[in-house]
Design a binder for these strands. Sequence first.
DNA 1: TATATTTGTGTATTTTTTACACAAAGAAAT
DNA 2: ATTTCTTTGTGTAAAAAATACACAAATATA
Lengths: 233, 233
Amino acid sequence: MDSTREYCYKYPRPSVTSDCIIFGFDGDKIRVLLIERANEPYAGRWAFPGGFLDMDESAEDCAKRELFEETGLKNVFIEQLYTFTQPGRDPRGRVITIAYYALIKQTDYSITAGDDAKQAQWFSLDEIPPLAFDHSRILQAAISRIKGKIRYQPIGFELLNEKFTIPELQRLYEAILGVQLDRRNFHRKIIATGLLIQLDEKKANVSHRAPRYFSFDKEKYEQLSRRGFNFEI
Amino acid sequence: MDSTREYCYKYPRPSVTSDCIIFGFDGDKIRVLLIERANEPYAGRWAFPGGFLDMDESAEDCAKRELFEETGLKNVFIEQLYTFTQPGRDPRGRVITIAYYALIKQTDYSITAGDDAKQAQWFSLDEIPPLAFDHSRILQAAISRIKGKIRYQPIGFELLNEKFTIPELQRLYEAILGVQLDRRNFHRKIIATGLLIQLDEKKANVSHRAPRYFSFDKEKYEQLSRRGFNFEI
DNA sequence: TATATTTGTGTATTTTTTACACAAAGAAAT
DNA sequence: ATTTCTTTGTGTAAAAAATACACAAATATA
C-alpha cells in the first residue's frame, strides 16, 4: 500500500477545483487573464488560474487563493459562474470544477506569475490560444454570462477606472455586447439611470471637445437595488 | 486500518452531492417537492431529493438519478442552480452540493417515496417546514432564480398542462412574481409574443364566459431563440 | 485663425406601455 | 325564457420610452 495515500474513504470521491475567469478592458477590447501551465497535464498550455480545494475553505475562497498564488491578484470580487462535472474532462481522473468570474480594472492590479504558472498574461477575446482541459467551453459560458448580465446590472463600471468618460463606457458596452450603440441615446440613457456622479474634470490632451469625467454612484446603486429597481441599457 | 475504507488519496477530498429543487403549480400556488429523510443526519426532517455523486456520472445525471430513486420522477428537464460549498454545511463532514432546479407539470407525474425517503410531498411556498442542512438557503436561491428568469424566458409554460388558458397563465405569473398584473394588458402582451397556438376548444363548466385553450409553440420558440430574440412580460 | 474631430444637448417621430371602457359568453337563479 | 352574475376578449386614448437625427460647443493641431 502506498503510504502517501493516507486519506481513505468508504466510497470514491472526485477531486474538486476552483477556477477564475478574470475579465479586463483596455479601452478597446475585452481581455481575459490566462496562465501558462508549468506542470502536466497540459504543461505549456494556457488555462485559467485555479486549483484544488482545501478542506477548510469554501470554493470561493479557494478560487481567490489560487488566483493570488498564480497571478498576484487579490481583493477581487468574484461571482460563481457554473460547475463543470462531465466525467473525462480532466486526464488526471475525476475532477469537477467550480468556476468563478470577475470583472476588474486592469490598471488597479499588476499581475505576476507564481507557483504552478510559468507566466500570467492578458489575451483579447479574438486571440485566445488553445486552452487546457475544457477551458474554452468555460470561457464561452463566462462570456455569455456577462453579455446577459450587463444589460440589467451595472457591472460595466467594475471594468473601468474610478473616473471615466461616457464615451469610454459606451465603448465598453459595445465591446461586450458586440453591437454599435447610438452615441446620443446612450449618453441620455446612462445619465437617466442617476447612477453617475459628474466630476469637475475633463479628459485632457484630446484634439477635440474634451469629455467630462464621471464616477459610479455605488451607494445610490445599493440603495436602489435593495428596493429592487431595474437598470436597463 | 478499516478495510472498508478502500478509496485512498494523497490529498483529502470532499464528498459531492447533487440536489433537486422541483417546482410545480396547482393553479393557485407554487409548490416545491420535498422528501422526508429516513436516515441520519436530520432523520425525519424535510429536504430536497438528492444524494452522492457516482464516479461515472455527471452531476446532472446524479441529480436525475436521485430524483427518480427518491420520488419516482423521471424525464425531468433540470438546470443547474448553484453550488454550495461552505465548510460546515453538512454534519457528516466536508460535503459540497451542486443544486439543480426544474419546473414540471404536476399532473404529468405521480410521485412515490422510495429508498432513503420515508415520503415525498408537495409543499406550497408559504408552508415550508423546517428543512435539513442549508436547504432553506438553497430554496431561497431557487426562488429568486425563477423570479428573475420568468421575465425573460418562457419557462412558465413548463408548469402548466399541454393546453392552458391565458387566465391560468396569468395566475402563474402572478404567483411567481408576487404582483398583480393587468388582465387585459397581459392578454395582449402574451398573444403578441406569437408563442401561443390558439386551440379550437374552450374551458367547459365555468359559470361565466369560457376562456379559450392555447398551447405553447415550442418549435417557434426554438427558432426565435436561435436568432437571439428577447421575450419579455 | 481655420480645420478636423468628437462631445453634449435638443427635438420630432415612432413605438411601447399603461389605464381604463365595454361588449360577449356561459352557467345559475328567477 | 329571461335576468343576473361573473369573467373573458377586444378596443382605445393617454402617457412614457425608444429611436433617429440636427446642430452647437469644445479642444488640439495645422
